[in-house]
């Protein structure tokens, strides 16, 4: 089934076509989410939401890009929103720690810096170091770098996913690599 046939079938609310879409792209979407969120449960939840949104808004898909690019874009945006939401919640929880007078209702919170970003996975010390270094990159650099290194996407496709120019993607990945280099080299020294 070609992309255009699939889109027509999805617009007509064909259940088999939707099942085909999920089966074909679930691994790709799940991995993209996992590389952004580094948490298996969150990745699965967001990946499911990506397909829900795909089903609900397929009529708005103009077919200017590949379905995979569109799904990547939705996955990246949803993951980005969750990362931001989690950061905001952490900030609020941290602030709550300093609120006077409510010591009894204070929840014992984890230190966010000590959070396990690869929850549910066995990992080596090297992997932890790399995850932390990638995680400390600015948002757009992190997204462009992970899409290139782990999803093995071409710069042009990354530009389409991030809705930016090719040169901007080149610059983002270049800066991401320089930052990673700096962080990892300083870690070894």
């Amino acid at each position: 089934m070609t992309d255009s046939e699939l889109i027509i079938a999805l617009v007509n609310r064909n259940e088999n076509a939707f099942k085909y879409l999920v089966e074909k792209y679930q691994g790709m979407v799940y991995n993209a989410c996992f590389h952004q969120l580094r948490n298996m449960e969150d990745a699965e939840d967001i990946a499911q939401e990506v397909f829900v949104e795909a089903y609900l808004s397929i009529s708005g898909f103009r077919g200017e890009s590949k379905i995979s690019t569109w799904l990547y874009r939705v996955a990246i945006n949803k993951s980005k929103n969750l990362v931001r939401k989690n950061k905001w919640q952490m900030l609020v929880q941290r602030l709550e720690k300093f609120m006077p007078g409510d010591k009894q209702v204070k929840i014992d919170l984890e230190d966010p810096s000590a959070q396990d970003h690869m929850e549910g996975m066995e990992k080596t010390e090297d992997q932890k170091i790399l995850w932390n270094a990638i995680n400390s990159l600015p948002e757009n650099q992190r997204i462009a770098f992970t899409l290139n290194k782990y999803e093995e996407l071409a710069y042009q496709e990354i530009a389409e996913i991030m809705q930016t120019s090719l040169s901007a993607v080149e610059s983002l990945i270049h800066r991401a690599k320089l930052n990673l280099q700096k962080k990892l080299v300083s870690h070894f020294n």
Partner: peptide, 17 residues
Amino acid sequence: VYNSLDEYPLPEPSAYF
């Protein structure tokens, strides 16, 4: 360190996805 993430098998979505 840089290639460490290439070595582990990627997790897969659950059977009830």
